[in-house]
Design a protein around this nucleic acid. Structure first.
Length: 567
RNA sequence: UGGGGCGUAGCCAAGUGGUAAGGCAUCGGGUUUUGAUCCCGUGUACCGCAGGUUCGAAUCCUGCCGCCCCAGCCA
């Protein structure tokens, strides 16, 4: 345990906490909470909050609650509660016995409302929602008082109790804080505290017909729970005066401080639960866990590791500046993790048959292949080789450009973990498509054999034609065509920016036979192609489905692009 | 035109009055049976702009400009 925290390099929130601890503000206690509303799946934006709240609790020997903000039963669902818990755990955090719900505090919150009414600081308004909106004024004009604003305390108490008793229909009355209808901050123009919602709540059933609004429920829950630092995103900055007002006007056991930080956005993605839900409803993705979705569940299925996501979020930092982080930063984090940990295997996405004219008919042999070039302790495996193999179609060009190091007519190339081969003939169909390549192999160049070190420019991956297995592979691309689809532009919505090519399914990819026995969720690197994961949902025993997490860095692609630009 | 917030290299981000860290990206180069990894090297950032205070300012003051958020009985 270290108490000599240096603030240098620490984000502004940690600096505040360090200062609070130094001044003894909360007797050195640090209590945070991650308060999701169970109305959707967690996305990459939430991960920031999770890492911050749980991370800070861990670093400062504090505690972090997982508190479901379940104050609006019409939008919330137990399925979302379950997915959120699974995601938080998967991300590596533990709330231990600190799983709570705003609904756990409904009694206390109700008591707070009564107290405000008794003190003349809240009143029951009977204006319609539309009327309240009209009375609220605009950004530049003050609002005006509701005709019900000066109801007696007794009448307010009576009305509010009857609201609770279920005597009124939805929308008939609402409890409002009595603050200032002329406040420049709209949140202070007598904000609603309670509304009537005669619906069943997923936890409290029909015990309540009224539910507290976010600002009220959240503030009181924070105080009741003993939260010291209530961390939230920037859009709640305008709510802080209301948060303070609630705290000021109630006798709560603790005074938390709200601190706001900016949300994390990733380019070419969206982090709006409403918009993500719309993608599902419109059938543009298969669900919350579609591998293209920026949800935790989607990213997990896509193959992003928990570690890589945490690193990404951590690298992004905590500030108050709007951020739109390049996808490359996220990709770098997975590559970093998977480069270290994913075993290497060979697979061919777009097979081109190669026949070795000088290799015996029906002959086969096993070649030793390292599971990880930089980590010999991970061992090796034997892969079958024979007279016919498949190579990647892209690795052969009849008329190649400059600097193309792969197979070409009369050219030589090394087969990864195998022989050096030479192209002697190219077979095409009537349409001119190359259908097969004939080669000779050089027996003296078998990988690992002394004297086999002859150098050739290129090494390509391959798979035995007879022993390899056909599998389905899914290649993903960015979900949207623009970096910030969330930004409003000319009335277009996010669906206007959908990338029609975000999913490419390869039904007949060929892989080493050993891959068929791997567990769903396992990560591998297909050499020269990228990192892949065995889909945990669509794979069946004996029939794995592979998702491409991310490609390898590809400097050839850059050269190719540069050459095209020259023309 | 009201209120709140933010502006340091393409993207993040340190810096808290003493003369601009780091990461990602980029571009070179080396190693390499993955054009991967790894290793080196690579950026005049007029610190949004303009004034001012100071021996000295990204850091303090003033005025502008730009971007984001706020008018749910959503969170």
């Amino acid at each position: 345990m270290t108490d000599t925290h240096d603030t240098v390099g620490k984000d502004f929130i940690r600096q505040i906490i360090i200062a609070d601890n130094a001044s003894g503000k909360h007797d050195g206690n640090v209590v945070t909470r991650f308060p999701p509303e169970p109305n959707g799946y967690l996305h990459i934006g939430h991960v920031m909050s999770i890492c911050l709240n749980f991370g800070i609790a861990r670093e400062f020997n504090g505690r972090c609650y997982l508190r479901f903000d379940d104050t609006n039963p019409v939008k919330e669902d137990q399925d979302f509660v379950d997915s959120i818990m699974a995601d938080v755990r998967w991300l590596g955090f533990d709330w231990e016995d600190r799983l709570t719900h705003a609904s756990d505090y409904f009694d206390g919150i109700y008591d707070c409302a009564i107290k405000l009414i008794e003190d003349g600081k809240a009143y029951v308004d009977s204006l319609s929602a539309e009327q309240i909106r009209e009375y609220r004024g605009t950004l530049t004009e003050p609002g005006k008082n509701s005709p019900h604003r000066e109801r007696s305390i007794d009448m307010n108490l009576d009305l509010f109790r009857r609201m609770r008793a279920g005597e009124f229909a939805d929308g008939v009355h609402v409890l409002r804080a009595k603050i200032d209808m002329a406040a420049a901050n709209m949140n202070l123009r007598d904000p609603a505290l309670y509304r009537i919602r005669k619906v069943n709540h997923q936890r409290t059933g029909d015990a309540w017909g009224i539910y507290p609004m976010y600002d009220f429920a959240h503030t009181v829950s924070d105080a009741l729970e003993g939260i010291t630092h209530s961390l939230c995103t920037l859009e709640f900055e305008d709510h802080r005066p209301l948060y303070e007002w609630i705290l000021d006007n109630l006798d709560l056991p603790n005074r938390p401080r709200q601190i706001e930080f900016s949300r994390l956005n990733v380019a070419y993605g969206i982090t709006s639960k409403r918009k993500l839900a719309a993608l599902i409803e419109d059938g543009l993705v298969s669900g919350w866990d579609d591998p293209r979705m920026p949800t935790v569940a989607g990213m997990r299925r896509r193959g992003y590791t928990s570690q890589s996501i945490r690193n990404f979020v951590c690298n992004a930092g905590v500030t108050k500046k709007d951020k739109l982080i390049e996808m490359g930063a996220l990709e770098n984090c997975v590559r970093e993790d998977l480069n270290e940990n994913a075993p290497r295997v060979m697979a061919v996405l777009n097979p081109l048959k190669v026949v070795f004219l000088n290799y015996p008919e029906g002959g086969t042999e096993l070649l030793a292949a390292a599971n990880h070039p930089n980590r010999p302790e991970l061992g090796s495996r034997d892969i079958p080789f024979g007279r016919e193999i498949f190579i990647e179609h892209d690795d052969f060009m009849a008329d190649p450009p400059r600097k193309f190091f792969r197979l070409r007519p009369e050219g030589e190339v090394r087969l990864r973990y195998g022989y050096i081969i030479k192209c002697v003939d190219v077979i095409s169909d009537e349409a001119g498509n190359i259908t097969e390549v004939h080669c000779t192999y050089d027996p003296d160049t078998k990988s690992g054999r002394p004297g086999a070190e002859r150098k050739v420019k290129g090494t390509i991956h391959w798979v035995s034609a007879s022993e390899s297995v056909a599998v389905k592979v899914r290649l993903f691309d960015r979900m949207f065509t623009v970096a910030n689809p969330d930004a409003n532009r000319d009335g277009k919505t996010v669906t206007d920016f959908i990338n029609p090519n975000s999913l490419d399914v390869v039904n007949e990819a060929r892989v080493e036979p050993a891959l068929v026995g791997m567990e769903p969720g396992a990560h591998v690197q297909f050499e020269r192609l990228g990192y892949f994961v065995i889909d945990a949902k669509d794979s069946k025993p004996g029939h794995p489905v592979f998702n491409r997490v991310v490609t390898l860095r590809d400097s050839w692609a850059k050269i190719e692009k540069a050459q095209l630009a020259e023309i």
